[in-house]
Amino acid sequence: MSEIAQKVKAIIVDKLGVEESEVTPEASFTNDLGADSLDTVELIMEFEKEFNLSIPDDQAEQIGTVGQAISYLEANVK
């Protein structure tokens, strides 16, 4: 697992209060990990803070699963 993927998982475990084993690439924040819309906004913010980048709203809306978050960040974090 990449360093980015590890950090993403840790943030999700912390913010959503889920077990690490649940945080699979296919897991959807809202359908599988119990997040509501505010939790999702907070997750995106935490990613921005952790990786020091800004995720535009239209792209943030495309990030609905753990895997999508990891691939977006792997592609965009410098």
Partner: peptide, 11 residues
């Protein structure tokens, strides 16, 4: 100055 307010801030 970038406004990064937590969505739970107000509630």
């Amino acid at each position: 100055g970038t406004p990064r307010f937590n969505p739970f801030f107000i509630p």
